[in-house]
Design a protein around this nucleic acid. Structure first.
Lengths: 212, 212
DNA sequence: GAAAACAAATGACATAACGTCACAAAATGT
DNA sequence: ACATTTTGTGACGTTATGTCATTTGTTTTC
């Protein structure tokens, strides 16, 4: 998290910094992004940057957090709207999300995010659902999912967490696959992304094995 | 790939370099590893390093390739041994692999590999199966899988590729989950890793949805 | 076996990024 | 008005990267 000093800054200056950072993280993946470029664009001295943020990662995840907050992706509401049908909720969530991520104004930022985020940092980019508390972020899910539709009992919260994690992985993977194809000149349409996601989600839902 | 010059080097010198690199990549994740440390340990001048390798990534993936070659993990043979039963093959593969990765001598290297490999570079760490050719790496799979056991027809090679990719993701994810737990002081046993993997694989095989 | 052609080795160099620190400036409190 | 705290600043030490001119070694050719 940014340091206290940052939040005491004039809003205009805060925005200038965040915009500069956002531009840099849209230009290149996190590892290639440089603090030097950010401060140059924001026109603030080097020392100030480190007065506001711990380091590059600090401002990156703060920026990412802002993006999430401003987006309409809210799995919680969706889950309630579909009476706790987890698969249905994830389907709907993906449809809304894919459109924004692929064609929205932050597409470049998301591209670098999805292609270069590793397992270790994956947790930090999960959707609103697990937003509030890190420790027990899936409490809402555990309480509001309809267990009748799953091979998971209400007494198996850990299994539910794992399933959710797997579903999110599938979401991320599908998006990443899109960007990968794009880079290798085999661009696919957003409909094909949807199809691919549907295919994998179908397997997770009903199995890929042929039980005759 | 290393440059031609590297392969003309005395074997002893090659090994010295690779060992130094391996130690460095075991010490810290790829992004934190430095060429400077590698050349210091290998006792070769800086200029030489760049005569042999393009950059850090070059020697990293070469090292990784050597590891794969020396390991017994061979999905192809396994697939034949189980008459093309893909799920059975992956199960067996995972059992063999998990043990080596978690308790083998290269555990530290693997830890950094699994926790920090992103979507973009994931492909480069796939098992022997897709070893030979990058372009059409899954040809063997397409030809030797028993389609009767899957909800995928022999006329849907693309779907099979996606399923395989998903299975490998599950493998990687399970390993990564182990290391993550370890870091957060909730260490789990290798048996629990197996259980977790079995759970997810079961979903992919038979679905997580309750079709009553 | 000398000369020419090619290959490999070397470390100084230019460049760029990082995070810190001592000091200056501004703001706030009393 | 002065003291105290907070913020601003950019030069600095450090560390890393990849290149290049030059030297050293090896092979080929006549």
């Amino acid at each position: 998290m940014p340091k206290k000093t940052f939040f005491r800054l004039p809003v205009e200056k805060q925005q200038r910094l965040i915009q500069a950072a956002h531009a840099e993280f849209s230009r290149v993946p996190f590892n290639e992004a440089s603090v030097s470029n950010i401060i140059k664009a924001a026109e603030i001295p080097r020392g100030s940057f480190y007065q506001y943020f711990e380091d590059k990662a600090d401002i990156f995840f703060y920026d990412l957090g802002l993006l999430r907050d401003s987006s309409k992706q809210d799995l919680e509401k969706t889950l309630l709207a579909v009476q706790g049908n987890l698969f249905k909720a994830v389907r709907q969530f993906f449809t809304e999300m894919a459109e924004e991520i692929i064609n929205g104004e932050n597409a470049q930022f998301y591209k670098h995010l999805f292609l270069h985020m590793d397992y270790k940092n994956r947790r930090k980019m999960s959707p609103e659902l697990m937003h509030a508390k890190q420790d027990d972020g899936l409490q809402f899910l555990v309480e509001n999912v309809n267990y009748d539709l799953l091979k998971i009992g209400a007494d198996q919260p850990e299994a539910l967490r794992i399933l959710f994690h797997e579903l999110m992985t599938t979401v991320f993977q599908s998006i990443a696959a899109y960007y990968l194809q794009q880079e290798s000149n085999h661009a696919i349409t957003i409909e094909q992304v949807q199809e691919r996601f549907e295919l994998v989600l179908g397997w997770l839902e009903h199995g890929a094995s042929n039980e005759v």
